[in-house]
Simulated assay, not measured.
Amino acid sequence: MTEPIRVLLADDEHLIRGALAALLSLEDDLRVVAEAASGPEALAMARAHRPDVAVLDLQMPGSDGVAVAASLRTEVSECRTMIVTGHGRPGHLKRALAAGVRGFVPKTVSAQRLAEIIRTVRSGNRYVDPELAADAISSGDSPLTAREAELLELAADGAPVAEIAQRARLAQGTVRNYLSAAAAKLHAENRHAAVRIARERGWL
């Protein structure tokens, strides 16, 4: 009899993580060997338990699932990664694939289907939710530079330009220029609208 697939579950919502662990444990060939509630904890658990597959929530405290997957690619290279998310956006999918993620699925997927996808990922194949894949293809690549995206992210909570400039260690005029350029690229009337558009498309 072959060894069961060793699974790490990382999700900051305890109820969801617990329910998922219970449902996956019903599968004879799967074994949840570790759970985590944040990005740093997921990395620590993966280093300690060396799972075959890490099932990562996209949005977690500390660092998101894509950042964790990128770290695991080098630190625990035998571990295959997949993202399960309630916030699937085209830009997130592209980032995930670039980080070596093998599976990308919405949280609406059934536990039975998730178990099948874990097996698919473990065997070295890839699974991407068809709807998310179609959205990613139709949305195109982000027109924003890395610096423009960074400053829009800092502007997302409504911080004034002076505060953004201080946090980014840039002159206020430079920050205004970057934010104006980002808004123009996104055809947004101001930086707040630019943040909303970029987030909707998964570019932030």
Rank of each mutant, 00 (worst) to 15 (best):
T2G: 10
V7H: 06
L9V: 07
A10S: 09
D11H: 08
D11C: 03
D12I: 03
E13D: 00
H14R: 15
L15Y: 06
I16G: 01
I16V: 14
L20H: 12
A21K: 13
L24P: 12
L26S: 09
E27G: 04
D28C: 00
L30N: 12
A36L: 06
A36G: 07
A37W: 02
G39Q: 13
G39D: 11
E41W: 05
A42N: 11
L43Y: 08
M45G: 05
A46Q: 07
H49K: 11
D52T: 12
D52Y: 06
V53I: 12
M60H: 10
M60A: 13
P61R: 11
G65S: 09
A67P: 06
A70T: 10
L72P: 04
V76E: 03
S77M: 08
E78L: 10
C79R: 08
T81F: 08
T81L: 05
V84E: 07
V84R: 05
H87Q: 12
R89V: 10
P90Y: 04
K94F: 09
K94T: 15
R95S: 08
G100Y: 03
R102C: 15
R102E: 15
R102W: 08
G103S: 13
F104E: 02
V105R: 15
P106E: 13
K107I: 02
T108F: 04
V109R: 15
S110M: 09
A111C: 10
A111R: 07
R113W: 02
R113F: 05
A115I: 08
T120E: 15
V121S: 06
S123H: 03
G124W: 06
D129R: 08
D129V: 01
P130R: 05
P130N: 10
L132D: 03
A133Y: 13
A133V: 08
D135T: 02
S138L: 14
L144K: 00
T145N: 02
E148K: 01
G158V: 05
G158N: 07
A159P: 00
A165T: 07
V175K: 05
V175N: 07
R176N: 12
R176T: 12
R176A: 03
N177K: 13
Y178Q: 11
L179D: 07
S180L: 10
K185I: 02
K185R: 13
L186D: 06
H187T: 07
H187R: 14
N190H: 10
R191K: 14
R191H: 05
A193C: 04
A194P: 01
A194M: 00
R196I: 01
R196M: 01
A198C: 03
A198W: 04
R199G: 01
